[in-house]
């Protein structure tokens, strides 16, 4: 009876509304984060991740209200990422009812921030989000580099070394997104996921590229991920979380029913 692998729907939130998923069958609640989160909760989602894609700081408050509203109704772990830059940002989001925060650019800008955050709030609630892109030429040994600002800005940092360092600094979990695959629906970058997972002692959430349920299973069986994150296959009503779990279970993967 081992630990279940997790399925995590991810919601992009802009100004308090879910911005992906405009093609919900039931249009009345399309875009309401509370409704969407509750539906995923009912479908058996193991966690929910909210990505705040709003850039401005006063929208942080809006995100805190979204989390408050969701946490009052959905009793599974909630993670919030996007624009987390200070210990105060973390405190506010956790107090609103989030269980974890995902830190990305702020960690690249100042890695010590991760250490300070883990010391202050505990590593169980610090997720470091890593956006990685392949930079090795065909035929060369595989190599990935960290990108920030939605994958637009290279940093020169090796992704695997970065993952190891972030775990050492106190990240309780890593959320790794392949920039090459994100939005392509071609499946996870399994080599990236597997390499990171083997290199770090902490759990890995694989992200970027899921286009069908097989991709989710592959992320676990071949990518060695502990959890798989996906957005569009759930948002557009193609699949429920329950269907995803059935597929995983058919592959012999332990899931929570």
């Amino acid at each position: 009876m081992p630990l279940a692998k997790r399925i995590i729907p991810c919601l992009d939130v802009d100004n308090g509304r879910v911005v992906k998923g405009v093609r919900f069958v039931d249009i009345r609640d399309a875009g309401d984060p509370v409704e969407v989160a509750r539906r995923y909760g009912e479908q058996g989602a193991d966690e929910i991740t909210f990505l705040d894609i709003t850039a401005s700081s006063d929208e942080r408050e809006t995100m805190a209200h979204v989390v408050e509203a969701v946490a009052a109704q959905v009793f599974i772990p909630l993670t919030v990422g996007g624009g987390i830059r200070t210990l105060e940002d973390i405190r506010r989001i956790l107090n609103a009812g989030a269980d974890k925060v995902a830190i990305n650019s702020a960690a690249v800008a100042r890695p010590e921030f991760v250490r300070e955050a883990a010391e202050r709030f505990g590593n169980q609630c610090i997720v470091v989000a890593i956006d990685a892109k392949r930079v090795s030429a065909p035929g060369e040994p595989l190599r990935w580099e960290i990108f920030t600002h939605g994958g637009r800005r290279p940093t020169g940092i090796d992704a695997i070394e970065w993952a190891v360092r972030m775990a050492e600094y106190g990240a309780g979990e890593l959320l790794v997104t392949s920039m090459d695959r994100d939005g392509t629906r071609e499946g996870f970058d399994l080599e990236l996921m597997c390499t990171v997972s083997e290199a770090v002692p902490v759990p890995l959430i694989a992200s970027g590229g899921v286009g069908n349920l097989n991709h989710l299973a592959e992320g676990i069986t071949r990518g060695h991920a502990d959890a798989v994150l996906a957005a569009s296959i759930f948002h557009f009503g193609e699949h429920t979380v329950g269907e995803a779990k059935e597929r995983l279970a058919a592959e012999g993967i332990e899931v929570r029913w």
Binding site: P2, L3, Q124, V202, D226, A227
Partner: peptide, 20 residues
């Protein structure tokens, strides 16, 4: 640091995080 499952030998991640 890196415990292993006694039956499968699989390396276990720490923290123990998720649904058990």
């Amino acid at each position: 640091v890196s415990p292993r499952d006694s039956r499968t030998g699989e390396r276990l991640k720490i923290p123990h995080m998720g649904w058990n």
